[in-house]
């Protein structure tokens, strides 16, 4: 701004265009535009609803202060759903990521079969939300389903999966792990990016497979691992479909994932204000967890482009 007038306008324009702030805003424009137009207002609206008794279908919403938030902390079902959701996230995310990483790693061999294998392993992710697959999954774990038949063939007792409060979440977790395809694909792309020279150098130094995996593959892949960890954690918090189609939250709310409870409150019980309060409360929980992941990532994420 304080530049001398004598600078040629062309030069000034050039400088302006190539200024970091300009470039940043130009490239980020699609997001900024979309965010302000289509995300910000809905988010703020839902924030405002959190302090009202708004329900879909009515036009008036009365200000209710912190009533919704106070109710939240006294709501048995919500407190249970919070515990269930945390359990779901803590178990399903690590399992899914480890599984996706191992499969991606095993399937990097250069062989024609690899394409076939990877397709096989990706298929489950292509059918995720379909009603048909949820039905199948339900029947696998039914009292006379395949899983119990296998257990009985081993001389074990069959399990009433969806009738047991302690076990009912497990089929849902397995279903989410089963759909590890998109994480796997992203890992595979990440593995492809690791410079071959690293491995060549390690080979010369006589490193074995395990050493190569832990000393080269994991560190080089760490930004992608961080990415998958953050994304899978958020999406596990948002998990909805499986519980909605398979268990409807039962038995005794032991599979009442938080997103399902939000849906029930917003659409089934018609308490939109309450659902919004719950969502914003959980946004804080998720935000805190994500922040912790980001803060700790400094210790284990290896960044090629940072200095």
């Amino acid at each position: 701004m304080e530049q001398k007038r004598s600078v040629r306008t062309g030069n000034r324009l050039y400088k302006f265009i190539n200024n970091e702030n300009t470039v940043g805003n130009v490239f980020a424009f699609p997001f900024i535009f979309g965010f302000i137009c289509f995300s910000l207002i809905p988010m703020l609206t839902s924030f405002r609803y959190a302090f009202t008794d708004y329900s879909l279908g009515t036009k008036t919403a009365e200000f209710a202060g912190l009533k919704n938030f106070i109710m939240l902390l006294q709501d048995e079902v919500f407190l249970k759903s919070l515990r269930v959701t945390l359990r779901y996230v803590l178990i399903s995310v690590p399992m899914k990521l480890i599984f996706a990483l191992l499969v991606a790693f095993l399937l990097t061999r250069k062989s024609k079969m690899v394409t076939l294998y990877r397709s096989l392993y990706y298929i489950p992710s292509l059918v995720g939300g379909s009603v048909a697959v949820a039905l199948v999954w339900k029947q696998l774990f039914a009292r006379k389903g395949l899983i119990n038949m296998i257990l009985q063939a081993q001389g074990l007792k069959g399990v009433n999966w969806f009738g047991d409060q302690k076990l009912a979440l497990l089929p849902l977790i397995l279903m989410s792990v089963w759909q590890f395809g998109s994480s796997m694909i992203i890992f595979a792309a990440g593995l492809k990016e690791i410079p071959a020279v690293y491995y060549e150098a390690a080979q010369i130094d006589g490193a074995n497979g395990f050493q190569r995996f832990f000393k080269i593959t994991l560190p080089c892949l760490s930004p992608i691992i961080l990415y998958n960890l953050v994304m899978q954690t958020i999406s596990a918090f948002m998990a909805f479909t499986q519980a909605f189609i398979i268990t409807e939250g039962g038995p005794n709310n032991s599979t009442m994932l938080y997103a399902l409870y939000v849906y029930n409150q917003a659409f089934k019980y018609n308490n939109m204000g309450y659902a919004c309060a719950m969502s914003w409360f959980m946004l804080l929980v998720m935000g805190a967890i994500t922040l912790i992941i980001f803060k700790t990532s400094k210790f284990w994420v290896f960044n090629e482009s940072d200095q």
């Binding site: 039905l135 339900k138 009292r143 398979i246 268990t247 038995p251």
Partner: peptide, 10 residues
């Protein structure tokens, strides 16, 4: 039927 069996009725 308990909840588990009931869930099988689609």
């Amino acid at each position: 039927p308990d909840a588990g069996a009931e869930a099988e009725i689609t």
